[in-house]
């Protein structure tokens, strides 16, 4: 199992007693125009409170970046028939901002933290997967070449252009977005996190069932695609849970699990 050395989080809604933990803060997204998507901004905010060696191995789990579609609105508005893909498309597309494309790329969180903090070690970016937390832990436990591993989860599923999509899956849920970072190292003293077991498909897929939480978290907590594994660990830290197996589900019949053990 991996030894947790440090953690931080930047979240848009409170998660119970987790907000009393050090380095866990409530944030509001501040739009910096064209340059950075919300998911990247949250990750940079959270990671600014950790000291990370520049050669650390990095895994990011990225949810929706949160800001792209609105760049297309001015292009649609100039369409003679009101459709984005309508007449004179090639001419209208000249108005797409050069950074517009970058805002829809889903590796922008890994790119942003690498540039901002000078991280040059190996990096893997997993996307759109609540279950990916356990699947990533499984590979990280085998990492022998890099003593320190940084795991960053970031998601902006509650932005206006994303919220309705997210609610297709979690229709009656309150959503939270933000970033959660974990630093694992051989001398970590906060707890053990591991997922030696591989994921497995559930026998009976339960799709779009709002009553079934995708993670074993307290009732009433907000939903956050891609952040739920991290929220479980924060909850364990805040509540002093000695040991627990957490389950993560993708809502399509696939589950993974990971184990927490307090040190």
């Amino acid at each position: 199992m991996l030894r947790l050395a440090a953690f931080s989080a930047a979240l848009t809604r409170p998660l119970g007693t987790c907000m009393d933990l050090p380095n866990v803060t409530l944030v509001e997204y501040e739009d910096d125009e064209q340059r950075r998507a919300p998911a990247s901004a949250y990750a940079l905010d959270a990671l600014s409170r950790l000291e990370v060696p520049t050669d650390a191995r990095v895994v990011t789990i990225s949810g929706p970046p949160g800001k792209f579609i609105h760049h297309m609105e001015p292009i649609r508005q100039r369409s003679p028939d009101g459709r984005l893909m309508g007449p004179k498309l090639a001419r209208r597309l000249r108005r797409l901002h050069p950074y517009g494309l970058l805002l829809c790329l889903q590796n922008q969180v890994s790119a942003a933290i690498s540039m901002e903090f000078g991280l040059t070690g190996p990096c893997m970016n997993l996307i759109e997967g609540t279950t990916a937390f356990a699947d990533a832990l499984c590979t990280l436990e085998g990492g022998k070449d890099h003593e320190t591993t940084l795991l960053v989860m970031s998601s902006a599923a509650d932005r206006p252009e994303q919220r309705e999509l997210t609610k297709l899956k979690f229709p009656d849920s309150v959503l939270v977005e933000g970033a959660i970072c974990f630093l694992f190292s051989p001398d970590g003293e906060l707890g053990l996190v591991g997922a030696t077991a591989s994921g497995r498909a559930t026998s009976e897929p339960k799709k779009n069932n709002p009553k079934e939480r995708p993670a074993s978290l307290p009732p009433g907590w907000p939903h956050a695609p891609c952040l739920e594994g991290g929220m479980c660990v924060l909850w364990a830290l805040a509540s002093g849970i000695p040991s627990k197996r957490f389950w993560l589900s993708d809502g399509h019949g696939y589950q993974t699990s990971f184990d927490w053990q307090k040190l």
């Binding site: 997993l126 990916a132 994921g199 696939y254």
Partner: peptide, 17 residues
């Protein structure tokens, strides 16, 4: 894609451009 292949093991999606 997992359903199409009949995959019943672990699955992840990667994006590094």
């Amino acid at each position: 894609v997992a359903e199409h292949l009949g995959v019943d093991g672990p699955r992840v999606r990667v994006d590094t451009a």
